[in-house]
Amino acid sequence: MELFDLFFYIFASVIVISGAVTVLNKNLIYAAFALLILLSSVAAMFFILGAEFLAMVQILIYVGGVLILIVFGIMLTGQVKSVPMRENFVYLLIAAVFTGLLCGLLVTGITARPDMTLTADIASTPIKMLGNLLIGKYYLIFGMLGVLLLVILIAAAGMARNNKE
C-alpha cells in the first residue's frame, strides 16, 4: 500500500461520512460544518490526483463563496437547531431507490469505458495549456458561460434593487 492509496482512502471515507452528516443532521450549523469538511476533502482529493487548479478553484469558490453564503443564509433562518425532517418509510424508500439508480448509473458509466479512466500518475496541470485550451479549442463554451454569468449578475443586481412603486 502506497502513501497515495492511504490518503486516497482516508479522504474518500471522510467525504462519504461528512456527506452523510450533511444530509442527515438536524442541526443546520452542524450540516454546514460537515459540508465544509466535505468540500475541502474533495479539494484534497483533487490535490492528490494532481489537479491542483481544480482543487484551488474548489476551495476558492465552494468554501470561500458558496459555503459562506449558505452559512449567512442559515443565520437568517429562524429554526436552526432542529429542522423537521421527513422520516417516513415511504420517503426513505423513494430516496433509497433513486440513490441506487444514480449509483448504478455512475458505476456502469465509468466501467463501460475503461479507456476513459486515467491512471492516477498525472503530472501537475500546466496552467498555460489550460488557458490556451480555454481561449482556443473551448472558446465557444467559455464565452457562452461568460455571457451566462453576466446575465446572472445583471439579474441579481436587478432583483436586489429596491422596487420603487
Partner: peptide, 23 residues
C-alpha cells in the same frame, strides 16, 4: 505551480472558522 492562488484559496477557511466560532 499555483502558489499564490493556493494561499488565497486556503485562507477561505479562516472566514468559515470565524463564522462558526461566532455562532
Amino acid at each position: 505551480n499555483l502558489g499564490v492562488l493556493y494561499m488565497v484559496a486556503i485562507s477561505c477557511f479562516v472566514v468559515a472558522g470565524i463564522i462558526f466560532a461566532g455562532w
